[in-house]
């Protein structure tokens, strides 16, 4: 597996996949995609990087412990639901707003925050599993 070509290509492939996963995440509300799929794509990207170049560079690259990322995602998703309580709506009601951004109207919502939370949980948990399995003990 650790051929020169694979090891050379892997960082670029991973970057592209992560970028693509964010794209899939953001378009999810209106087109096929969403947090679960995006998260899986990003996790696969890290797994590929890990197989090609070893686990340590991956851990260096994502900086945080994957489980911490997952925990932050879970927190984010939970909080996204709490926001609606402040405007006297029941838990998990979606709130929407639009902002003007470089000449385009962009829809922002608590639902999007929730989906980002899902994305982070999936990325974190599955990357953590994959990396843990890629680390092998000496026997």
């Amino acid at each position: 597996m650790r051929t020169v070509i694979f090891r050379t290509v892997a960082p670029y492939l991973t970057s592209l996949m992560v970028l693509f996963s964010i794209f899939v995440l953001l378009r999810g509300h209106n087109e096929p995609g969403g947090g679960f799929i995006g998260g899986l794509i990003a996790a696969s990207a890290f797994a590929i990087y890990g197989i090609a170049c070893g686990v340590a560079p991956v851990r260096r690259a994502i900086h945080f412990h994957p489980m911490a990322i997952a925990a932050f995602g879970l927190f984010l998703s939970g909080m996204a639901g709490v926001l609606s309580i402040f405007v006297s709506r029941s838990y998990m009601s979606g709130l929407w707003t639009s902002v003007h951004f470089f000449g385009n109207w962009i829809d922002l919502s608590t639902v999007l925050i929730f989906d980002i939370g899902v994305y982070l949980v999936v990325v974190g948990a599955i990357t953590s599993i994959a990396l843990a399995l890629e680390e092998r003990d000496r026997d």
Partner: peptide, 10 residues
């Protein structure tokens, strides 16, 4: 099914 796939994978 979408969530079930991810959970069954975990």
């Amino acid at each position: 099914i979408l969530t079930a796939i991810v959970i069954s994978f975990s």
